[in-house]
Amino acid sequence: MSTPTDSPSAAADRDPVQEARAHLEQALAALDRLREVLPPPSTPPPETAGGESA
């Protein structure tokens, strides 16, 4: 317990699914910000060019 607010009962009350969802939403928001900053790719990557059709 690193801080006085950490307690076993508080950890038990947390919903791991809600925590995972919050982390995923933060990651998606970061990706959206990167899309706005980075230039679009000039050519599609080889994986999406239909290389797995055979």
Rank of each mutant, 00 (worst) to 15 (best):
M1P: 12
M1Q: 10
M1F: 04
M1E: 12
S2N: 08
S2F: 04
S2L: 09
P4E: 07
P4G: 06
P4L: 08
P4K: 10
P4A: 06
P4T: 12
T5G: 05
T5S: 09
D6R: 02
D6S: 05
D6C: 02
S7Y: 04
S7C: 11
S7W: 03
S7V: 00
P8T: 03
S9H: 08
S9I: 09
A10D: 06
A11K: 10
A11S: 09
A12D: 07
A12E: 14
A12Y: 00
D13Y: 05
D13R: 12
R14M: 12
R14I: 00
D15Y: 01
D15A: 01
D15L: 03
P16C: 05
P16N: 04
P16G: 07
V17N: 10
V17S: 08
V17G: 06
Q18T: 11
Q18M: 08
Q18C: 02
E19G: 02
E19A: 13
A20I: 08
A20N: 01
R21K: 15
R21T: 13
R21A: 14
R21Q: 15
A22H: 14
A22V: 13
A22N: 12
H23R: 13
H23I: 12
H23P: 05
H23Q: 12
L24Q: 10
L24N: 13
L24H: 10
E25G: 10
E25P: 01
Q26F: 07
Q26M: 13
A27L: 14
A27D: 13
A27I: 14
L28V: 10
A29H: 14
D32L: 12
D32M: 11
R33N: 13
R33H: 15
L34E: 15
R35Q: 08
R35F: 05
R35M: 06
E36M: 10
E36V: 02
E36Q: 15
V37Y: 09
V37C: 03
V37R: 15
L38T: 12
P39H: 04
P40D: 15
P40M: 05
P41T: 05
P41A: 08
S42Y: 02
T43D: 06
P44T: 07
P45T: 03
P45H: 06
P45A: 07
P45S: 11
P45N: 08
P45C: 07
P45L: 03
P46N: 01
P46F: 06
E47F: 04
E47I: 06
T48A: 10
T48L: 13
T48C: 01
A49P: 02
A49W: 07
A49L: 07
A49D: 02
G51E: 05
S53W: 00
S53R: 03
A54L: 08
A54E: 00
